[in-house]
């Protein structure tokens, strides 16, 4: 046998694999651009139909602004960052469906037999799905002026960062959900079942203080609450904040909660994939 195996550099190989898995998610988005439209349709509907309808009905600026913040927001302004976060949560979770797709159509096998680490595959998927979700979220920025949300460069940069973080964490969560699923239908069902309460209990659509206190407890353990808070207060300084025992949760703490969720989910997802070897 004359062929020689080239020297192995596992780190390079795994890093390039992460990049490749990430690229693949983007190529797939490019090949199925209708995904973008369906991903944006629901948020637009919420914002311009639900938002417009409720705006005049709930005309109480103090409900949508923090006390003493000086700024006042109407419902549509309040809703906008919430809708953005909602779009990220939904599309990130659903983009993890590509895991189940890959299993159903066999490509998962090609990845699982390759001499690459499971963590690299999962990381690439989470980054790829996260990026796709952020692209959808960023497109929504365009309509911000239409509902009266002021954009500055600092706010947009902060917003993209917040969206990336949230999208990455939620995709990782989606991968955990999809890690053991064989059919796309079951994934869709479970993902819908999870996203709806997550969004309703996150403050994305209405201020949390209007909820009964027992539900308020649930909102504090819902990681989406902190993601929504992060997105909203980045975009609308002076909007009502999440509180712990009456104290305002700082933005960095919001970011930490989301980051920790992402990290935990990533670790859990790679463990689930490693275990099945």
């Amino acid at each position: 046998m004359t062929a020689t195996t080239p020297p192995d550099r596992p780190l390079t190989r795994n890093t390039s694999t992460v990049m490749m898995v990430w690229t693949r998610e983007l190529i797939r988005l490019k090949r199925m651009p209708t995904r973008l439209i369906t991903g944006i349709a629901t948020p637009i509907l919420y914002l311009f139909v639900l938002g417009a309808g409720m705006k005049n009905l709930v005309n109480s600026p103090q409900a949508f602004s923090a006390a003493g913040a000086g700024a006042t927001f109407d419902y549509q302004e309040y809703l906008f960052p919430g809708i953005m976060a909602m779009s990220i949560i939904t599309s990130a979770l659903f983009s993890a469906m590509s895991i189940v797709w890959d299993r159903e159509f066999g490509f998962m096998r090609e990845m699982l037999v390759a001499p690459v680490s499971r963590t690299g595959l999962v990381l690439g998927k989470a980054l790829g799905g996260g990026t796709v979700a952020v692209i959808q979220g960023v497109i929504l920025i365009v309509v911000a002026p239409l509902v009266g949300v002021d954009l500055t460069v600092t706010r947009v940069v902060g917003l993209v960062g917040a969206l990336l973080l949230l999208a990455f964490a939620l995709t990782a969560f989606g991968i955990v959900l999809g890690a053991r699923m064989q059919r796309m239908e079951s994934f869709q069902m479970v993902a819908t079942l999870v996203t709806q309460p997550m969004i309703f209990l996150s403050g994305a659509i209405f201020p949390l203080k209007s909820l009964p206190s027992w539900l308020n407890v649930l909102t504090r353990v819902n990681p989406a609450t902190y993601g929504v808070d992060l997105v909203r207060r980045t975009l609308l300084p002076g909007a009502p904040a999440v509180t712990w025992n009456g104290n305002v949760v700082p933005l960095w703490a919001d970011a930490c909660v989301v980051l920790v969720l992402g990290g935990l989910m990533l670790a859990l997802a790679s463990a689930l994939f490693r275990q099945s070897d």
């Binding site: 080239p6 192995d8 550099r9 596992p10 390079t12 190989r13 390039s16 694999t17 990049m19 490749m20 693949r24 190529i27 090609e110 990845m111 390759a114 001499p115 690459v116």
Partner: peptide
């Protein structure tokens, strides 16, 4: 693209 993906995972320069 399928081939390229494979090459990356198997460390082919």
């Amino acid at each position: 693209e399928n081939l390229r993906f494979h090459a990356v995972m198997y460390g082919v320069p």
